[in-house]
Amino acid sequence: MTAHHPTDQSLRRYERGDDDIPADELWAVESHLENCAPCRARLVPDPVATAVWAELQPALDRTPQMPRARRRWNGWFSPAAAPWLAMVVLVTAAAVALDRLGLMAGERVSVVLLVAPLLPVLGVAASWSRALDPAHELVSATPRAGLPLVFRRTAAVLAVVVPGLSLAGLVTGVGFTLWLLPCLAFTVGTLALGTLVGITRAALALTAAWATAIAGPPLLFQRTPLLLDTALTPLWLALLAAGLVVVVLRRMAFTRLETNL
């Protein structure tokens, strides 16, 4: 750019980093170097890379490398949910055992069927609630908080609950159609009610509803719960759809702290 290139002497002083160079000269040299490749080449003699490398190499061996530690978490499961999901698996196994022994509700009511709607409620509460997740406030404040993360975590819960129940169904002979819809409806119901009153309260309310309407009567009167009859499939479908609509409409609730706890 400029016709006046710096003299060898001022380049050498600049290179050495002398601190007595007058400020105007220093700036002139520096701004010239930014725009003039030939002068940069004068400044940096070829063996410099070799020299730098020779100095660096011994230091590299002593510098600790960043460990390639494998991350031990997963973006799908809530870190707080692990013990609860283990419990869900245990409850499923216990239900199968009770069914096989025919102890709890006699021959005519399957315990697997009775616990099916309750299991995902536990998992969902563990995945997104202030009471069960110690880092809930931290998580709620992040950009990822919101419906996509909640759906992810719910999918992870269902990925444990549904195969577990399917296996239990195969062992005990309880049909898929009987438990799947109530199970999904309770899952979405927890989230939907949770957007209104907080997930913890929603889980408690739905557990109470389950105890009085589904699990109570059969245990008392030894007959298949009315609500789990296949004739009620449309009802469960309607509840599921309504729940999904509420969840989507109230999705911003998942980006805020549950203040009403």
């Binding site: 978490w73 406030e137 992040t142 990822r144």
Partner: peptide, 22 residues
């Protein structure tokens, strides 16, 4: 009230938050 996951290592916890921060 800074809540954390007791079983996580320091690195795991900070990288989990980094993931949450997209």
């Amino acid at each position: 009230d800074f809540g954390y996951y007791r079983r996580f290592t320091v690195r795991d916890f900070v990288s989990y938050v980094a993931w949450l921060k997209e």
